[in-house]
Design a binder for these strands. Structure first.
Lengths: 208, 208, 208, 208
DNA sequence: AATGAATGAGTTTTCATTCAT
DNA sequence: TATGAATGAAAACTCATTCAT
């Protein structure tokens, strides 16, 4: 794979090439989930995938590209899943529930990817020392804040600061999954019920 | 001082010894906060402290001990600060507010330590691959859950699952600080007001 | 075409085969001229040629053969050009001028090839660690020394050691081109005039 | 060696530190002289010095610094030796001879260093792809050109372009040593005599 | 005739730790 | 008590080459 192994604008990636890339991405996610970002070396990832170290270098520009890809693919897939649910709901109240439950269900169904994504998002730095995901996370918060605002405008939600509330709700959702992920004996359905209940009590108009 | 430089059970640690250890711990916290757990090498920490690398190895059993100590000291100090506030409150409602605001205020006043603590807690693994902080975090949640239960028993809070609610509230608090820490232009007092408002709306008895 | 792709003794090398080989040789020369012998990897050469890396391995026994060929082709071509000029001159004096000016003009007209040749000649080692070009360079010097001797015999040149003088003149010529190649703002015609003048003053009989 | 291992501005380099650096520099020169710039890896240099690879990284910022140092030290030492001789001569004619013979003698007495220096100067590239020695080489040529000009002004030398003549003479000197270095059976004193004779015939005033 | 894929050997560099002083 | 020096292990990455297709 000499040319064009950049993420965007790939044309004519062979089937085998695509399969290998996905195999490596999967192995990388598993490794990061297992041993943490700091200990996820290319050696370990290669071992996890059952391939030689240099195969990774062959298919990816570098560790950087690989890590970003692992996180990005998961973020994109989970967003797609979640937005489909959100759009199906007519009211802001319903959309908030759909957002949270969509997120939770997708995360729960993809434990490894979720763990890897969290680890990468919080630890990865670009060559210049900056975090390449901050922009996206901000956008996610903005989007959710807009949803809350809509609910306020429509009289479904009470008055509160939409942006900091968005931060609170979204991080709470992640926190709940993190708790479950560490201790799978917890009943996730119950947990999510509690969260939805909690959130709706917090934001709905008082005199409903 | 080659042996027995463990944290607990130290007797007769000389003044100079203690001073050096604290200097190193401070430098380690600053380094982790700046470059992240994965990039915080002993070299960088020594450079930050303006001392030689081997000083660290001399005063600490290893990098492991140092990292754990950085996080532990911060956790202990913030807990002490916060519990003092909580104990001063008579009602569960007041204690919840005190817990949250105590946490927020301490974190906000110790930005570097907070960043380092979060980074270490989420990334550090013992030699056996386990996370040495899970136990403590669980205890913290349990303690807060007991507080919530007390509030339910006393009729201040409505019915909900105390433990998952505790997770939600505690992680929300951390999330709020994380957001502020990344963007110090936010008005922290406002943010905290929103959080307290949010939480109390979520847990208080309906017909108060 | 896995076997027998050595330079000499090829029979029935297809047209397409020959074209590919020359394309690769050109790309190799360009790469060496640009980034230097030490940094001229097959990857870079393939990239320069716009072909896949393995094409090179297919058409050449190895990097070794390719590098030798790049230099050899240039040496042969420049020698051919130069000797044609030399043979046209009747006197030793004229032949010395023709040799130098022929060399200079050919080098100047083939900047890339010249740079690559110099880089390869001075850096390339065979598998046994020896330099495969020393013999040829010696022969070149010998040939030029014979020309100088002829001039001495014919009374055109004064007495001096022909071989060391040959070394001096030939390397001076290369040095002049090297200087021009690094700084193309220099007036090459002027420079060459200086060199010819210099050489002839140095070797002609005193009482001419 | 944590801090201050930059080339310039070193203060208080310990004796052992300085000794190690010189040992490594010597080993690096030997290695480059033996196997050529392109094959002189840190592994080979360490092997040559009989030390572990990481000792080099400990004492030098990187391969780059080491290579530059090897060449620079040799250039500085040879220049010092040569200039002392040149300054002792009253006439331009004498200074030209002193320059050439000084150079030749120093190079001949330090064969390894000379070979390494030539190899590094012609091959080494800085991180940005530029050659860090071109400036110095230019200055050397300028300095020699000024000497030639002085000789012209004083009526010792005939008219010619000083700068291109300087290039010719200086590179001829190097070429002569290169030839001797490859074949030590040559009589260097004879060779040098030829060169001096050659040069003086080329530049002196006609009607002396 | 061509090449995508793979790989082991090798590159430079950083790491945490040990040890003599 | 402190540290300069040393080092083996491991890091990310590049290399020339092989091979199945």
């Amino acid at each position: 794979m000499q040319t064009g192994n950049n993420t965007t604008g790939r044309k004519r990636a062979s089937f085998i090439e695509q399969a290998r890339r996905e195999q490596v991405i999967r192995a990388a996610a598993e490794t990061v989930a297992q041993v943490g970002y700091a200990n996820a070396s290319l050696s370990r990832i290669a071992e996890q995938a059952g391939i030689s170290k240099s195969v990774i270098s062959y298919h990816f520009a570098g560790k950087d590209e690989l890590m970003v890809l692992v996180a990005q693919q998961f973020i994109d897939a989970s967003a797609e899943f979640m937005f489909a649910r959100v759009e199906a709901e007519p009211t802001a109240t319903g959309q908030v529930s759909a957002w949270i439950s969509g997120q939770v269900e997708y995360y729960a169904a993809h434990r490894t990817g979720f763990l890897a994504m969290i680890s990468i998002i919080t630890n990865h730095r670009s060559a210049d020392g900056s975090n390449p995901f901050t922009g996206q996370l901000d956008e996610e918060v903005d989007e959710f804040a807009r949803l809350l605002q809509r609910g306020q405008r429509d009289g479904e939600f009470r008055a509160f600061d939409p942006r900091s509330t968005a931060v609170i709700i979204l991080r709470s959702t992640e926190a709940l999954i993190s708790a479950w992920v560490m201790d799978e004996s917890l009943d996730l359905t119950d947990q999510m019920g509690t969260l939805l209940d909690f959130v709706h009590h917090a934001i709905r108009r008082e005199n409903r």
